[in-house]
Design a protein around this nucleic acid. Structure first.
Length: 113
DNA sequence: CGTGTGACACGTA
DNA sequence: TTACGTGCCACAC
């Protein structure tokens, strides 16, 4: 139940999130920076509100840390998509290997263009 | 109109 | 290399 409808900015954020290819991920800041609007916090807000309809697990922190409360679900997706994961000496998955999984949206990407 | 919070990011230890 | 603290922008009360 959302108390507001997706704004134009939200639609753009969701659009980018939907375009993130499997095995790749984008940081909130990257999406905000790519759109050139608002900031990472605003992107995170959009994902928190309407991110449930997109590959939310492909949108994580810039340091590669997984989404709190959904690490397990996200981890399962990464294993299925073969997303480069980062593990500690203990072998525990600490997050995603952003240096390899980080995906940058093409400048003139746009679905219709 | 002002204060507090959040699916964040950078700097420091 | 990993973990913790502070600052930003916009929304809700």
């Amino acid at each position: 139940m959302v108390t507001a409808q997706p704004t134009d900015f939200a639609e753009r954020v969701l659009r980018v999130a939907e375009n993130i290819p499997p095995g790749r991920v984008m940081s909130y800041g990257d999406i905000a920076e790519y759109l050139g609007e608002k900031g990472p916090r605003q992107v995170g807000r959009v994902m928190a509100l309407w991110g449930g309809g997109v590959a939310w697990w492909r949108v994580i922190h810039a340091d590669g840390s997984l989404l709190a409360g959904h690490e397990h679900q996200a981890l399962a997706r990464y294993l299925e998509e073969g997303t480069p994961l980062r593990r500690t000496r203990d072998g525990a998955v600490c997050g995603v290997d952003m240096r390899r999984a980080r995906w940058l949206a093409p400048e003139g990407w746009r679905q219709g263009g």
